[in-house]
Write a protein that binds this DNA or RNA. Structure first.
Lengths: 135, 135
DNA sequence: TTAATAACCTACTAAGCCGATAGGTTTATA
DNA sequence: TATAAACCTATCGGCTTAGTAGGTTATTAA
């Protein structure tokens, strides 16, 4: 299950991608139109800015704006930044790999093999999709 | 991410499926050979019995055994019992559907559409696999 | 009939995460 | 100089996870 943080983050990015002009949009406006707690969204947008997806402008008329072309933003990278691993087990994660304590040998582990297949099929869908497809 | 409960549960089922005879296997033995905390595993196996995957026999020589043919046990049903929803959002879950508080209209929600595709591709993999494939 | 065995059941807990909320600081604009 | 909006830090209640502890019931073997 995706956390609300991730869901809200994606919605916010899609909201920005829908806009034709690149003028900054305030947190409060996104929060209002997407029904998200403003303060919670604030922390998410900050996160997205620090991760290089968004730029920010302070003061009146300020807000957040997309830095890159929505077509260039894969959903895999968005989800990895907001949620963390896409895989269902740490031992099959490409970007957040961790060995299982209990498993002596990954190559013979039946669960491992299965989850690799799940991971790959999920990755196929998500890597083909960009922010532009959501907007 | 799958919980350890789910991972352990699948491993335990696979352990039983690997065996040629259908004689009961004790919790302690499975725990030992799969490196799982015995007491924790106990609660998982109980769960799997109550869900109709396992039968149990008490007393000496007792233990748990598979009720059905491993070929007949889809991984989707196993995961749903142990973990709950397979979908990444409640609003795209087939078996555990819940409406999103924040979303006024699912049909126009960009995240919703994306997660349906992820769900379907995951479901395709998992529904084709049975316990027999893991053993 | 008794002892041993193993499932069954109930309750508890420490730790961590999630989804916020509160309140103050900095920077840019009018 | 006042206002606006991002930025930052800290905190919190509630929930889930991954167990642990300890006793009860049913079955088997001596």
């Amino acid at each position: 299950m995706l956390s609300k943080k991730t869901k809200y983050g994606i919605k916010a990015l899609a909201h920005l991608a829908k806009r034709t002009d690149k003028s900054p949009v305030q947190t409060a406006e996104i929060a209002r139109s997407e029904n998200i707690s403003p303060k919670f969204l604030e922390s998410i947008l900050l996160n997205l800015r620090k991760s290089g997806f968004l730029g920010a402008k302070k003061g009146k008329g300020g807000g957040y704006y997309l830095i890159k072309d929505p077509k260039e933003i894969q959903m895999t990278t968005v989800i990895r930044v907001l949620e963390g691993p896409i895989a269902m087990l740490p031992c099959v994660s490409l970007n957040y790999y961790e060995k299982c304590e209990d498993c002596p040998d990954e190559l013979t582990c039946s669960v491992h093999k299965l989850m690799i297949q799940v991971r790959d099929s999920t990755l196929k869908v998500l890597s083909e999709k960009t922010l532009a497809d959501l907007a």
